[in-house]
Design a protein around this nucleic acid. Structure first.
Length: 248
DNA sequence: ACTCGTGTTAGCTG
DNA sequence: TCAGCTAACACGAG
């Protein structure tokens, strides 16, 4: 279930189908394919080929050859992209491209939280969490009265940080998720950015955010470093765990 | 049986 | 303007 590292994997899945001719599109699920009427995405894409695959935060898009339309995809909380797999039962493939020769690219998403759109608008997104500069990170995370964890989750501030990644980075940086952005020092912000980037890189390498040292221990109780019982609360609308001793 | 959740957005409230 | 809350989605996990 996707955060930035999982979205990057999905982007790489799209790269596997670049250049193949699209011969059919299943866009019948008009909840996932919003705001398009059934057949609208199909009409735009049939006969075309994807030319490139991009990602910003958790948002994906693919451009088509000959400056054709752009296809936007989002995995939501339960979605994944499958390449050349047989169709899923119960119409759990909420959107699919079919290629000449029988291959397909499917958005498999049981909860229907994913999205497929034409000409996606990403203007509301902040810089990608993996590539944000130190100066930009300080400016976007270090101001305001929201709890710092809530700001990390704000895709308009920084794009790509989800609930688990936020807890992991704050724990690694030893910063309380409840601290007001205003109160986080420049030194702490730099540390947070470094730990965030490290957590993303490790997740890429190990196969997902759930492999993080803190995330793996998150529900079990004690802090993996000091053994203190973890605190739990809702912050920024999401269940949050932290070590009350180390993350002051 | 029942609650909760690796996400996003619109709409409302303070 | 900023921040927080809720509903909607539909299913698996605990």
């Amino acid at each position: 279930m996707p955060e930035l590292p999982e979205a990057e994997r999905a982007r790489q899945q799209i790269e596997r189908v670049l250049g193949r001719e699209i011969v059919a599109v299943d866009d019948r699920d008009t909840y996932v394919c919003r705001p398009h009427a059934s057949g609208e995405i199909a009409a735009a894409l049939v006969g075309r080929r994807l030319a490139s695959a991009h990602r910003r935060g958790k948002f994906l898009w693919a451009e088509t050859e000959d400056a054709g339309p752009t296809l936007g995809l989002h995995l939501g909380m339960s979605g994944r992209l499958e390449v050349d797999e047989p169709p899923a039962p119960r119409r759990w493939d909420r959107f699919a491209l079919e290629f000449a020769g029988g291959g397909r690219l499917a958005l498999h998403d049981r909860r229907r939280l994913g999205r497929a759109v034409l000409e996606p608008d990403h203007s509301h997104l902040g810089p990608d969490a993996e590539h944000v500069s130190r100066a930009e990170f300080r400016a976007r995370i270090g101001a305001g009265t929201a709890p710092v964890k809530a700001r990390l989750l704000d895709q308009g501030a920084i794009a790509g940080v989800g609930n688990l990644l936020a807890d992991e980075a704050l724990w690694q940086a030893r910063i309380s998720p409840r601290r007001s952005c205003d109160d986080v020092t420049t030194e702490e912000l730099d540390r947070l950015r470094r730990e965030l980037r490290t957590a993303i890189r490790l997740a890429h390498r190990h196969g997902g955010v759930h492999t993080g040292e803190f995330v793996a221990a998150r529900r079990s109780g004690p802090c993996p470093r000091c053994g203190t019982l973890l605190e739990r609360a809702k912050i920024g609308g999401r269940t949050t765990y932290w070590c009350p001793l180390e993350q002051a």
